[in-house]
Design a protein around this nucleic acid. Structure first.
Lengths: 267, 267
DNA sequence: TAGTGGTCTAGACCACACT
DNA sequence: GTGTGGTCTAGACCACTAA
């Protein structure tokens, strides 16, 4: 059946788990178009023989590839390569103007307007799940692309989680990279809220737009694995310079995503 | 160690897979707060004994619960109940004004402004990945909450995929429910783009807002499992009545989500 | 050192899709 | 029927964490 000799480049001495190696191998085949979209993959039994691993390994690899949207499986029919249209790798992402510009080789800049310890307002306390009035670090930044102001961001983090942050220069450094590299802090989950609002006078001045022109208000809360809120930020993006993308994928139980989609777009 | 007697309500005669039953059982314990947030779950070995199933079953159940954000696992430490703050169940969802209102008991209405077969414009053809000029079904709908217009939606589907749709009354029926119930068509993935735009004269009239007031423009493409685009829609939501929520969760490989978050919020 | 989750094996039976 | 993916068993060894 399969005329392709899937190269069995599994290295059993490697510290890399076998299922990861299988993922990589299949990934290569798909990405190099040796397995074109719509093509049926060898059955799990044959993959076991090809890679000389157990079915558990094959299934774990296929499961991750399915989650990533690279393949889809159909009981009784087989496993097939999905159309690669959806930007590969991942369940969801929320992208904006920034990385679009970075991808195009532009270099975004930041100006820190404010970076100090303040008492949490009621709203900030609610988002960060701390006491009203507790110390938080507030960081106001205005960000530019090609010297054009694009987004005004106010970030809040609980002071006690990262007191050192008060002295870190965030004009040229990613907050997330700093937290992960210096403190081993990783974000496990996040929540975003988007609204369209008119610019007030201050915002209009900073972003150099007309008063009342449409802005995207993006509220974000990020959580650690145990559910502790790490960061809340409130960002105002110029409507004429921002576009956000969200990729969705159906979760295991049939109906889940369909349900959600229905909620959004129909009565 | 565990003073709780996890009721072992596994029914081996049931057609429901064992791992689903385990998920449900653990879910119940977490949701009823018998396992409070932060609490360590029994180890996998003990869960095997409790439910009298193999470790494969337990691990499959725990994996799904982890994906759903209900628990988190730490090698060498154990499995713990996550803070349930993030709206349960799911990797991501994109919700808007509609279901918020439905959840509050309000009843959204729709008016179909247009529903006909038209040739695909260049843009629609690109989104649906069909030939320019090919037949598509276009459906324009204006949607209301409490007799207040909230969103103006234009939907496009390839005519050949669902020609019957041209005659279906969608004023009182969900498009997704219709496709799934009548044709067994399920959406596997989707993409959303959000922007803030000012209302033009026609939009302002229909949505009863001032010209130039902020609207959320939501473009959506939905795909079948094999990657075929099923539907494209273009929706304009009143900015003063709409708020969108996106939940994100880190994908297996460490760094993935952190990377994306970094892209959004920092330089 | 003991317990945990992470990875892996070599089987098994089933429901489903296709021919 | 034959092949497919879905579910499940009863083991095993490992690396990591914490006492």
């Amino acid at each position: 059946m399969s005329e392709y000799s899937l190269e069995t480049k599994i290295d059993r001495e490697s510290y890399i788990p076998l299922y990861i190696q299988v993922i990589d191998a299949l990934n290569d085949y798909v990405e190099s178009n040796k397995f074109p979209p719509g093509h049926q993959l060898p059955g799990e039994a044959e993959l076991c023989r090809t890679f000389d691993v157990s079915r558990t390994v094959i299934r774990q690899a296929l499961q991750e590839l399915e989650y990533k949207g690279l393949i889809y499986r159909s009981k009784g029919r087989g496993t097939f390569v999905a159309e690669p249209k959806i930007h590969e790798s991942l369940f969801q992402e929320l992208t904006g103007f920034y990385q679009d510009m970075e991808a195009k080789g532009h270099r975004p800049k930041s100006t820190v307007l404010k970076q100090e310890k303040v008492p949490a307002t009621k709203m900030v306390a609610a988002y960060l799940e701390i006491e009203e009035g507790a110390d938080v670090i507030q960081i106001d930044r205005l960000r530019f692309i090609e010297d054009e102001p694009i987004v005004l961001v106010t970030t809040y983090l609980p002071f006690e989680l990262v007191p050192e942050l008060i002295d870190i220069d965030l004009a040229e450094q990613s907050l997330y990279a700093y937290l992960e590299n210096e403190h081993g802090i990783q974000i496990a989950r996040g929540k975003r809220f988007l609204e369209a609002v008119p610019a007030n006078q201050l915002e209009a001045e900073l972003l150099k737009v007309d008063i009342g022109s449409p802005l995207i208000l993006l509220d974000s809360i990020s959580y650690l694995a145990d559910g502790t809120p790490l960061e809340y930020y409130h960002a105002l993006h110029r409507g004429d310079r921002s576009r956000f993308e969200v990729d969705l994928i159906r979760v295991s139980q049939p109906g889940d995503l369909a349900q959600k989609l229905m909620d959004v777009s129909s009565s």
